[in-house]
Design a protein around this nucleic acid. Structure first.
Length: 293
DNA sequence: ATAGGCGCCTGCTGGC
DNA sequence: TGCCAGCAGGCGCCTA
């Protein structure tokens, strides 16, 4: 569920609730998450203060005093929230951290258990972990050359490239579709066949879509909530994702759904042309006015 | 090396 | 009403 905007919202919500607080008790349920929980974690975390919390791609990193790093991934249905200690614990809650000074509890809930929580000893270990996974750069402020180069280097379709966390970290299925729609690029286009201008359209569309989603506090379709438990609003602004059979907001053609890179993919078959237009040679720069009727 | 497919989990929805 | 296939915001492992 959570892509970069959702994870960013969680981190921003949690920051004032967690930073400076101490874990006074730690509990883990019996069901395993995606990665085995670190041996001796209760002892290492109990009594420790949270110094900072940050995001990297779709990962959440809580920086603990004395160097330990708690690294959380929300998978598809993960929720990381602070709640009052007396609030009922919902089903599928797998980790609970008691906070000092009546600040409540940090709780990790995850119905499908595709999420994970891992304890590292130091920042260097977290960085080594991200490096081993090949985690790519954050998608903001990248130069055009980076996109052009990464797209040129692969014969995969655009949808697959956007979902690849090694190319750019943080884009998932929703925002891949929304960015391709905004850039008017067909998701099945082969990445290496992109022109420089198209590559730059995609670069800008990814940034624009993600920034807008952060402003709207992410998308809540089913499970997603921010760090204080409230839903996001971006789902009301989807142009392509989940709108199969509805009219395209730009041209009125019906949004189609196909399967690409193993994922449901939504696009407008008219605005997002599969074949490249060769008409933008020199003279006809502003030819987009022609596609009326 | 790289690209595609499957499995991991649970819950919900739509069609028969 | 009931059942079951299909689907879901992600990722890692296996194979060709």
């Amino acid at each position: 569920m959570p892509e970069l905007p959702e994870v960013e919202t969680v981190v921003r919500d949690l920051r004032p609730l967690l930073v400076g607080r101490r874990f006074t008790g730690v509990w883990a349920g019996p069901l395993a998450l995606r990665k085995p929980w670190t041996r001796g974690w209760e002892r290492r975390l109990t009594g420790r203060r949270v110094e900072a919390i940050r995001r990297r791609g779709k990962w959440i990193v809580a920086e603990m005093e004395r160097g330990d790093r708690l690294v959380v991934h929300l998978g598809m249905t993960g929720q990381l929230t602070v709640a009052p200690a007396e609030a009922p614990t919902k089903p599928h809650t797998h980790l609970v951290f008691d906070l000092d000074e009546g600040a409540g509890q940090l709780r990790f809930r995850d119905v499908r258990r595709f999420g994970s929580a891992t304890l590292f000893q130091a920042d260097e270990d977290v960085e080594a972990f991200f490096r081993a996974a090949g985690l790519g750069p954050e998608p903001f402020g990248l130069d055009a050359a980076y996109w052009r180069q990464r797209l040129a280097a692969t014969a995969r379709c655009l949808k697959a490239v956007l979902l690849d966390q090694r190319v750019v970290a943080g884009v998932g299925n929703i925002y891949a579709d929304e960015a391709l729609y905004a850039a008017r690029l067909h998701p099945a286009r082969i990445a290496s066949g992109m022109g420089a201008r198209e590559a730059d359209r995609l670069r800008r569309a990814v940034e624009t879509v993600l920034n807008r989603a952060i402003e709207r506090r992410g998308s809540s379709i089913r499970d997603y909530v921010g760090g204080a438990g409230q839903k996001g609003e971006m789902q009301t602004e989807f142009r392509a994702y989940g709108r199969t059979g509805e009219p395209c907001p730009r041209c009125g053609a019906l949004i189609e759904r196909v399967r690409l890179a193993g994922r449901s993919t939504h696009f407008c078959p008219v605005c997002q042309k599969k074949e490249v237009h060769h008409k933008d040679k020199k003279g006809t720069k502003k030819s987009h006015g022609l596609k009326k009727s």
